[in-house]
Lab assay of single mutants.
Amino acid sequence: SLSVDNKKFWATVESSEHSFEVPIYAETLDEALELAEWQYVPAGFEVTRVRPCVAP
């Protein structure tokens, strides 16, 4: 099958004044980091952490 098993990760994104967490959907932690950097670094943010979303 061609289905992709995307998992939810939380990326911590920082600017000079703010820090916030955004959801990233990817297959692996490395891919989540790449996606977060691709989305947020060009906008002037720094991705400081990516972690798996742990269900309660």
Rank of each mutant, 00 (worst) to 15 (best):
V54W: 11
I24E: 00
R51Q: 05
V4D: 07
W10Y: 07
K7V: 08
T48Y: 02
W38Q: 15
F9T: 00
G44V: 00
I24S: 00
L35M: 09
A26L: 00
L33H: 06
D30L: 12
Y25F: 09
W38I: 13
D30E: 14
E31F: 06
V54Q: 09
F9L: 02
E21N: 07
A43I: 08
E37K: 15
L29V: 06
S16Q: 10
F9Q: 00
E17P: 05
P42T: 08
D30Q: 14
T28P: 01
L2P: 11
F20W: 08
T12M: 08
Y25H: 04
F45T: 00
V13D: 00
W10N: 01
L35P: 00
V54N: 11
V47G: 00
E17I: 08
R51V: 10
L33Y: 13
S1N: 10
D5W: 13
P23W: 11
V50H: 01
L35A: 06
L33I: 13
E17Q: 08
K8A: 06
K7T: 07
G44C: 04
S15R: 08
C53Y: 07
W38F: 12
A32K: 01
E21T: 08
L2S: 09
V13K: 00
V4K: 14
S15L: 06
R49H: 13
E27A: 14
V54H: 09
K8Q: 07
V50D: 00
E27F: 13
L35T: 06
F20A: 03
E21G: 06
Y40S: 04
S16N: 10
A26F: 02
K8M: 15
H18F: 15
D30M: 12
E27R: 15
D30K: 14
T28M: 03
D30P: 05
A26G: 03
K8P: 04
P52A: 10
L29Q: 06
A11R: 01
K8R: 10
A32F: 02
L2M: 10
L35F: 08
P52D: 05
E14Y: 12
V54F: 12
T28C: 05
P52N: 05
A55D: 09
E46D: 06
V4T: 12
V54C: 09
L29G: 03
V41D: 04
S15A: 06
E31G: 05
V41W: 09
W38K: 15
T48L: 07
K8F: 13
A36D: 00
A26H: 03
G44R: 00
L33G: 03
S1A: 11
N6L: 15
V41I: 08
N6C: 15
A32G: 01
R51W: 09
I24T: 00
S15E: 03
D5C: 15
A43R: 13
E34C: 12
T12W: 08
V22Y: 04
A36I: 04
E17L: 10
S16E: 10
V50W: 03
N6I: 15
T48D: 02
A43W: 15
F45W: 06
S19D: 03
P42K: 08
A43Q: 14
D30A: 13
S19F: 07
D30N: 09
C53S: 08
E31T: 05
S15M: 07
I24M: 03
V41P: 05
D30T: 10
P56K: 07
S15W: 07
F20N: 01
Y25V: 04
I24C: 05
D30S: 12
V47P: 02
A36S: 03
E27V: 11
E34N: 09
Y40T: 05
F9P: 00
F45E: 00
D5H: 15
V4F: 11
A55W: 10
S1H: 11
L33K: 13
Y40C: 05
E21Q: 07
V41T: 09
V22C: 07
E34R: 15
S3T: 10
E34A: 15
V22P: 00
E31H: 10
G44H: 01
A36H: 01
A32N: 00
R49E: 07
A55Q: 09
E21Y: 06
Y25D: 04
D5P: 14
S19K: 11
S16H: 09
S16D: 08
A11G: 02
E37T: 11
F20V: 03
W38M: 14
T48E: 02
L33D: 01
D5F: 14
A55F: 11
A26M: 03
E31A: 12
F9W: 14
V13R: 01
E14R: 14
T28H: 05
L2T: 10
S3I: 11
T12I: 05
V13G: 00
E34I: 14
E27I: 08
P23H: 08
A36K: 01
V54M: 12
P23A: 14
D5L: 14
F45V: 02
E37A: 09
V13Q: 00
E21V: 09
L35W: 07
S19I: 09
T28E: 02
N6F: 14
V13Y: 05
E27K: 15
S16L: 08
Y25N: 04
V4I: 12
P52T: 07
A36E: 01
E14W: 12
P52W: 12
T12R: 12
P56F: 12
L29Y: 07
N6P: 13
L33F: 13
H18A: 11
A11M: 05
A36W: 03
A55H: 11
P42V: 07
L29P: 05
W10L: 07
A36G: 02
V47R: 00
S16M: 09
T28L: 02
V4H: 13
R51D: 04
L35Q: 07
S19W: 11
Y25L: 04
E34S: 12
E37I: 15
A55Y: 11
I24K: 01
T28W: 03
A11H: 01
F9A: 00
V4L: 10
H18K: 10
K8N: 04
W38H: 13
W38V: 10
R51N: 04
F9V: 00
E27Y: 13
P56W: 11
H18Y: 14
S1G: 09
E34Q: 13
